[in-house]
Design a protein around this nucleic acid. Structure first.
Lengths: 171, 171
DNA sequence: CAAGATTGAAATCTCAATCTTA
DNA sequence: TAAGATTGAGATTTCAATCTTG
């Protein structure tokens, strides 16, 4: 998912035509650039924050999910953290060896595995989440309250639409 | 940079206090969630598009930078693609073995190395960039023209502010 | 066969150390 | 010494194949 576009406004060879389609595409490219850059810049701060506790961004994402939602199936975690199915197995393994998460079986459907915070994981999150929230707020402090609300609304519709879109085979 | 927050509105145990600070933090966390999700969803489409040509998102980022800006120093590319210094060396190597990019020396300062598109790389980008632009536009079509402009403005200030912020040591 | 998770191999990326030149 | 790039080692991720259960 390492993707960072670099197109800029003052580019050497942008298309010269001025059709509605090309203007629309340029607008989209510009948005994609700033979206990726903003995400990257904010993610850097967030990663630095969780690294202070010896955690990876992805690890913290899992802990956060379990902290807020309680026990979850591995598949559910996968959707939230946006990682391959092999990825969560690896990550949950690591969190388990750190003693922060434990696996549980599902009596109804024995194919599924649950993950849940251990007492230690729970305690850790209770201890570090507040300062994590402050760190995130700091990283996003470039926007005021009203602007943050606007941005949230726009990004929500953007993200939902993109997530529902057919997987590129439809062209 | 793999970071995907998962906090949601209807969380089990959000802080109960209602201070201005906590409300501000919750707003920020919400924005961080949708930012990461939107980025992830869009990036998935973009990666799929470039993968059809056997390219990685990061590889395409470099090609795009060189295509639009011309010859660049490796350090400049690094800033644009947001990858480690070892990372660009690796990526440029790969693009070079693919015959899309070539390294050049700098007479003035012999420490620096330039990267530039080869004729083949130039031809490839000329061929695939237009449909890439369409793919990006499609992935972002969840927002209308005016909304895209708003989002771009907000994300630009957000990203610039986050990029300029001190690296967490200041707390 | 399909869904869910795991495994092993390979690709990608980061990190710290190093080399070269300024 | 510092800046720029490279290297090698290791960590993280993906991918395809497999195992288990429905």
């Amino acid at each position: 998912m390492k993707t960072t576009p670099v197109t800029t406004r003052a580019s050497r060879r942008t298309t010269n035509d001025d059709t509605a389609a090309s203007r629309s595409e340029e607008r989209a490219l510009k948005l994609w650039v700033v979206l990726a850059r903003a995400y990257g810049a904010v993610a850097r701060h967030v990663e630095e924050d969780v690294a202070r506790h010896g955690l990876t961004g992805a690890e913290f994402g899992i802990l956060e999910a379990l902290y807020h939602k309680g026990t979850l199936r591995l598949g559910e975690i996968q959707q939230k953290v946006l990682v391959t199915s092999g990825g969560i197995t690896y990550l949950v393994d690591r969190l388990a060896t750190k003693g922060l998460v434990e696996r549980r079986e599902c009596p109804e459907d024995r194919r599924v595995r649950y993950a849940a915070l251990t007492a230690g994981g729970e305690a850790l999150m209770r201890r570090i989440f507040p300062e994590h929230a402050r760190a995130v707020a700091g990283a996003l402090s470039g926007l005021g309250a009203a602007e943050q609300a606007e941005a949230t609304a726009l990004l929500r519709t953007l993200g939902l639409a993109a997530a529902e879109m057919p997987a590129a085979g439809a062209r």
